[in-house]
Each structure stands twice: as structure tokens, then as C-alpha cells.
Write a protein that binds this DNA or RNA. Structure first.
Lengths: 221, 221
DNA sequence: AAACACCCTGACAGAAACTGACAATCAGGT
DNA sequence: ACCTGATTGTCAGTTTCTGTCAGGGTGTTT
């Protein structure tokens, strides 16, 4: 049945980071290339975020396309609470991303969903990350794997400067902490964002190195 | 095209809290009842959580069935961070619900998703709600709108007892707070869960009353 | 228990959609 | 200009789908 094949195409594309050619799709689904061209056109007409380029192949547009998912009430409660927590704890950028997630869910759930209109679980007002906290920029540096020069003020007020590999950011109750790999010390170092006097993102990229990743640090806890 | 109609059926069911008869679906989609029966069978064979009962009609099974959704990287980051926050801050039950959400998302994103395997944003260890905190039971009482007798210990250690309408729960950094409507005082009252010596859920239900809802309280902040 | 509302499935003829093969066109690279 | 691969249009044959009809079952209300 065709509907199943349309979903299968999305599954294949979802599972691949690189573009997939129509021929590969045709082979894996046992149909002709012409049929794949038709299916892609149908998916696109239905609004699926699939794009293709001559000589390259097809892929899902930047981002993540989740298939239909079913949640129980308590699961949706947890999900919505989580989104509200991020809104409360992150800075404007993170909060805006969370708001967009919420908006997308609201759009599809509509008026029937009481957890949206009449929430049961809320998040208390807490320290909100100011734009000047650097959270967004440090997240970007981390994502792009750019070494970063950090001017840090320790708990006695003394400043120190170092160039580190930013690996990840952790939300504690009142502060965010940047976990980085310090090449001088050859060890992980944590920096509270509220104690970072200033920082400067370099254009030196660092590579993934086993033992020196955020995951390695998180596992060591 | 049939695929579009299958989605349309889900949209109609998603937007209705009450069962919808095959005839209503047939009328709104311009097909025969027999075709709706076939479509429902197809949706069910594809795993959609649709159920029907003779004399009643069709509806989505308890819970919420979200259609395909597309998220940008930062949106998914926010969503996953939120789920991790709930896992860190809630009790076992809430955390389990969050874990199931995460598992569902992991299942569909598979290995390609680095935000899952190699997160950029983490949540610090913090006070976890013990099972004895009552969070899950109070959430249940709130959901079922059952008056609850609360033995409360104020900050001087003195106990007091009252029967209230539990309205909602709020997560602060270190504590959860129950917001309730006190019928004696005719006002909202908040109770930190860690200061609730004990509570007893009654079987007296309370109705929705404008001005006395969690939403009313949240709006007053 | 009876009446009403609604779900369900099989069979069949006709209609609609789909498919693969082939040809033509387009786009990018050499 | 030529080559290669992607894409779209066309067509005949195949497959799927549809509505109608018949027959059977379940849930709710009076």
C-alpha cells in the first residue's frame, strides 16, 4: 500500500544524515525510480520537509521530523512541564526555542487539551538567565566546537584567563555551568556562567577526542 | 488521495473529546461509511491508537496522538533539556513519565541524533523528590479534583489541619508547592510539600469555580 | 426486554489510482 | 559541445479503491 511506502521513505531519510538518492530508495523499497519521484512529490505536496538536489539526493530539511507519536496524559504533563522549566531557567534564546515547541504542540492539540489551558503542573519563578549571561553564545561555541578564551573570577574574586574547549552546559538551580576541557591542565574544568567576567570565542576549531568529551565528563559523575 | 484522508480522520478525532460516528466522518470527508470502516481498519493496522465501539463511535485512545512535527535543532535541544529537567526534579513517577517520553523520541530518531547521544545541555544533580513527598498522590488528587485534608507544619514547627481543594503543583528550585483553595479562608493557600506532615485524600469532589482555579492563581502572580 | 444508534465484514462491479517503461527535457560538470 | 544523472510527461496494463448490498454484533437508553 502506498501510504506505508510514503512513511517508509520518511523513515529511511530520517535515519540517514546524508542525502539518499532516488535509486537507493527505489532499491530498498522494491519500486522503480519513477515511483520514488512521484512519492517525493506527494510527500512535498503534503508538507513533509523533504528536499532534493540534482546530483545529490533527498534528505529531510535541517532539523528533526518526528513521526506521529502517542503520549499518555502523564507523559504529556511531564513534557509540558519540561518545556515550562526550560522557559523559566534558560535565557531568552532558549526560552524562545521552548516557546516554539510549545506553540507547535498547541497548534496540533487545539482546544481539547486541558493541560495547556489549565495546567496542573507549573514552574515557579526563579533566576532567569540574562542575555548577558552568555548562555546562547557559549552554546553556539560549544556546538560549533570553537575554542574559547575565558576570563574567570573565582570565589575569592581573582581573575584568571585561559583558552578552553567548551563541551557542554549544565543547568543547576540557580546557575548554569560551562564544562570545558582545559588543554593546559589536560583536564575538565567547570565555570559558573555568573563568574565568567568575559569570554571570547576564537575561530580555532577543536576535534572530537575520546576521553575529552562532555559525555565522558557526565559519565564520570 | 487516500493518504490525505487517513490523516484527516486523525485530525477530526484529535479535535474531538467525544466519540465520532463513522457517519459523521463520512459526511465530513465526502465518502461512504464503508470507506470509513476500511480507513479505520487501515489506520489501526498501521498502529494508530484509534478505537471504536458499537453504539458509541470512534475516538483516539486515552492520551494524545501528535501528528508529524518538525523541530529545529535548538527546539529539540530545548525539548530534551526540559525532559531531563523533569527527570531531575520530579519524583519517580514523574521521572518515569519523562523517561518514557524520551524513549519514544529516541526510538524514532535513532542513532543519527547527536543531541541524544552527545548532549550539549545537561541538568545538574539537585534535590530529587522522594516517593514519600506525596507529589504523585497530590497530583492525582488534583487531577481527580478530590478535596484533601492536609496536616501542615509551618516554619515554626506548628501543625495545623485543614481541608482544601488541591489545584496545582509548582516546581521551585528545591521544593514543590501545592496550591490549593481553602474554603475556610476563601482564599488560595500554598503548602510546601516538604512541610506537609501528612495528607489524606477524601472522596469529596469539588467543581470548577471561576476565580478559584489554578489558572486564576497563576494569573494573579 | 425492546428500540435505537452505531460498529463491522464480505462480495462484487465499476471507477480511480498507481506502476514501470520509455522518451524528452533540464541542470551541472568537463 | 558533449556527457551524465536527475526529473517530468505519456501511455498501456495492473492494482487498489469505492459504493452498494447483505448480514451480523455491541452499547446505551427507555
Amino acid at each position: 500500500m502506498r501510504t506505508i511506502r510514503l512513511f517508509s521513505i520518511l523513515d529511511v531519510l530520517r535515519g540517514r544524515k546524508r542525502p539518499v538518492s532516488a535509486q537507493v530508495l527505489a532499491d530498498s523499497l522494491g519500486v522503480s525510480v519513477r515511483t520514488i519521484y512521484r512519492d517525493i512529490a506527494t510527500l512535498q505536496s503534503m508538507g513533509a520537509p523533504v528536499r532534493g538536489e540534482g546530483g545529490v539526493g533527498y534528505q529531510i530539511e535541517a532539523g528533526f521530523f518526528l513521526p506521529p507519536l502517542h503520549f499518555e496524559q502523564d507523559e504529556l504533563d511531564a513534557l509540558l512541564l519540561g518545556i515550562r522549566m526550560v522557559t523559566a531557567r534558560g535565557d531568552d534564546t532558549l526560552g524562545a526555542a521552548a516557546a516554539r515547541v510549545l506553540s507547535k504542540i498547541e497548534t496540533v492539540l487545539g482546544d481539547t487539551e486541558t493541560s495547556l489551558n489549565q495546567p496542573l503542573l507549573a514552574v515557579g519563578a526563579g533566576p532567569r538567565q540574562a542575555k548577558s549571561s552568555g548562555l546562547t553564545d557559549l552554546k553556539s561555541a560549544t556546538q560549533r566546537r570553537l575554542k574559547t578564551k575565558v576570563i574567570y573570577k573565582d570565589d575569592r574574586g581573582q581573575l584568571s584567563e585561559r583558552v578552553v574547549r567548551p563541551l557542554g552546559l549544565t543547568a543547576f538551580e540557580a546557575v548554569w555551568v560551562l564544562t570545558a576541557w582545559c588543554e593546559t591542565r589536560e583536564a575538565f574544568r567547570n565555570f559558573r556562567l555568573d563568574r565568567i567576567a568575559s569570554f571570547e570565542i576564537t575561530d580555532q576549531r577543536f576535534k572530537r577526542e575520546p576521553g575529552k568529551e562532555f559525555n565522558d565528563y557526565l559519565r564520570s559523575l
